[in-house]
Structures are given as structure tokens and as C-alpha cells.
Nucleic acid binder design. Sequence first.
DNA 1: GAACCGACTGACCGATCGGTCAGTCGGGGA
DNA 2: TCCCCGACTGACCGATCGGTCAGTCGGTTC
Lengths: 229, 229
Amino acid sequence: MSMGDARGRILFAAEELFSEHGFDAVSMNAIALRAGASKANVFHHFSTKNALYLAVLLRARQEAASHLRSLEHGNGPFARRLADFAGSHLARLLEQKQLSRLILRELLTIGPHRAQELAEHVFEENFRRFVLILRAGQGSGELRPDLDAAMVATILLGANVFFFEARTLLRHFRDVEFMEKPEQFTEMLVDILLHGIGPSPHPVRSRPLRGSGSRINRDTAAAARRNRK
Amino acid sequence: MSMGDARGRILFAAEELFSEHGFDAVSMNAIALRAGASKANVFHHFSTKNALYLAVLLRARQEAASHLRSLEHGNGPFARRLADFAGSHLARLLEQKQLSRLILRELLTIGPHRAQELAEHVFEENFRRFVLILRAGQGSGELRPDLDAAMVATILLGANVFFFEARTLLRHFRDVEFMEKPEQFTEMLVDILLHGIGPSPHPVRSRPLRGSGSRINRDTAAAARRNRK
DNA sequence: GAACCGACTGACCGATCGGTCAGTCGGGGA
DNA sequence: TCCCCGACTGACCGATCGGTCAGTCGGTTC
């Protein structure tokens, strides 16, 4: 929790508050209080409120980029890589929920100009990497070649993001039972995607992902977690 | 633009500003200016800033509920109903982007308590209605019975919401070509879902989803034919 | 006409906002 | 020893915040 230097504590407090309440709802005084510093000291380390916000955002981006870069381990079968990616991505959203919310908030606020910058410098690299995985799957015949790979990527990411951002809502729906089990969500998501994506004339449902029985393998998410560390 | 009474103009201005910048970033003065009224008059019609915000939010909810209720016309084949639902939902997100953003903003802010209220009073009804459509599809054999219907609903809604909220970003990605054509997005989405959802050995592929057998899915139709053999 | 109404306004309130400033303090280099 | 520098503070600034208030105005009712 408490980092040694005040600067770190300020950044941490700002990250918490900004992600929880948004930029305008958080005062520099509140940040200083939570960080255990004086307001003037906050301005000593960060020249303006906006500079502090940008510093927090920068950390979020770097964190996101570095983490997603670690997902490149993939040489296994396509289904496995897909499940790994989906599981890791969702797990990361949930683990770093403050940063995730921060970025989702940004998404709602930014205009076209900042969007382009954000797209090019931060997200496109990861998105493209994912798309390339999918294209590789198409090339090797493990994925329907007529599909738009970016489309598939969008669906998968969208499902994960929606799971994350609407989870406090979905949790209350009678029909929803998977909210407390992200791994199960990932598993079902990949199952659904695969059988829509699979190239074979018959759905590949009978073909096991990892050589176990006909049921969708229950431990892909666990495998993803294992692979990550 | 200009509605007759000042109260209406205030509500309209508030809706614009709140959805664009968020609650805390908008001052009552700004709302009054945009509405062409004095700040005191705004307080004459709405006792507090929060009351005004709630009034805007209430309108958004009612609007959302009434519109989704109009989607219940469904007696056609399952694939058609699914495409209709997805298409209408996405179209509505894009048409009413101010209200949509408003609600997405709320989702990021609310705590568990307000979430429950919001869930029960506004969204669950629509969500459940959609789930029932899916369950009906399962009952009539048009949809894989082993799937969690709520899960399928979440994926579809998530894809649409993500399309909406990330569209300023996605538009800049080289791999993404469908951002300017929501109908094409819906079509591909439903295609992917259907072939993952269809009952196992022979997926039900209803003919054209939308009235005209348009050029739209020459690729996907070809793939469907390929998959069938 | 008098009495009353809701719509509406400008001037004003205390609180809080982001940001500044002069100055205190402790540690390290000369 | 002196000096300097970065971390840090409390007191303070003008601007703006949400909200109040006394009062004006045009229309309706008796």
C-alpha cells in the first residue's frame, strides 16, 4: 500500500480516486489527503492537476502494454491460444480494475483528435497483435478464412469489456450465473466463438481442445493463468 | 432544437452536457447558458443539480425501455429475430448516443447499492426478454440447448456496446473496416454467433437475414455452404 | 381593482476549486 | 563551516462552484 516516497503515494492515491470518481469529481485536496501529503506538495511534484492525471494515465498505458506483451508466448494449438488470450485479458481487466475503469472513462470522454493519438500509440499495437494471431489461425486452417479477423477480435474484446463494466449490473440478473466465475465465462465465450469460427463442415464440438472428453475443457482459464506468470 | 418551454430546453441542454462531459464537469451556469435561461431559473425548475441529473437520467431510462419494448414483434424464424434484435439495439445505441453515453458513464460510477436498483427497475426487464427469445430458440431446436442463454445475450450486447463505446478508437485501426457500417457489423456478428450457436450436426442456416438477399454476405454465405458439405 | 400565481431574473452567499508563494527543514558537497 | 537544493508546509489568491433570495413581470381569478 504505502510506497516510500510521497510522489509514489500521490500517484497511487490519484489513480484510485480518478478511476473511481473521474477527473472532475476529484479535488487536489482530496488526493493530498489520501496520499498523506499537503496539497502544496502535490503541486510540488506535479505542476498541474492535468499533469498528475496524465502521469496516472501514462502509467496505466505502460502497464497495459507491458502486460499484454507477455501474452505472446503462443505456439500451441489455435483454440488454446485463443482461450489463453481471452482469459488473460479478462483476468487483467478484473485485477487492474482501477486502471481499466480509468481507460474506459477516457474512452467516453475523448474527441476524435485524442482518439487517434491514443489508438496509434497504445492500443493498436495490441489489437493488431491479436488480429495477427487470428489471421495465423486462418492461414493454418484452424479458423474460417472468410471471416474478418478484426471482427472476431472486436467481439471477443467487447464481451470481456462488457463483462467487466456491467458486472455490478449483471450480477443482479436472475438469468446470469457466471458473473462470479470469470474463468467459466471465458470458457463459454471461447466455446461459442470457436464453434462459429471453426472451419470444419460439422461443428468441431466433439473434438476436445486438449485431448480430454467431449465437454469443453474446464481448465483452459486455469491454464491461461498458469501460463501468464 | 429549441423546445417551447424553458424547462424542456434546460433538460435538453443538461442531457447534452452531462452525456458529453459527465456530471461533475458540467456547471449549472453552463447548462443555463446553453438553455438560454438564467441560472436561477434552472434552480426554479429543478431544486438541485442532482435533481436535474436524475430527471435527465429518468428520461433516458424511459426512452430506452420504450424503444426496446418495440422489438417484441418477433414471430419470425430465430435467426431473423436475433438479427433484428442486434441490429435495432446497435442502431439505437448510435442514434441516441448522448443517452447511451450517459448510461455507460453511470455504469462506471455506481456502487453496488445503486446498481441493484438500476438493474431491477430498468435493465433486467429488457435483458430477460432477450434471454427468453433465446430460450425459445433453444426450445424449438433452433439453438444449441446446452448453452447458457444469458451468456449468449451478454456476448451480443457486449459486442454492440463495445462497438459503440470504442468506435472512435477502432476507426483508426488499420485492420478494422466495419466501423462505418453498423449493419455490416451486425450481420457478421449474428453470422458468427449463429454458427456457434446452431444445434450441433447441422446448423440451421436460415436464408437471408434481412429482407433483400443483398450482396452483404457473399463471403459468409459461401462459407456457410462450404461448412455444410 | 386586488390578490394571487408561476416563470423568471440579478445580485449575492459561503464553500471549495486549482494554483501560488514565501519560507522551513534536513542532508550532502565544498 | 557554509551553502545549496529538493522535499515539504501553511497561508493565501481569484475564480467558480451549487444554491438562495428578494423582487419583477404577465396572466388568471374573484
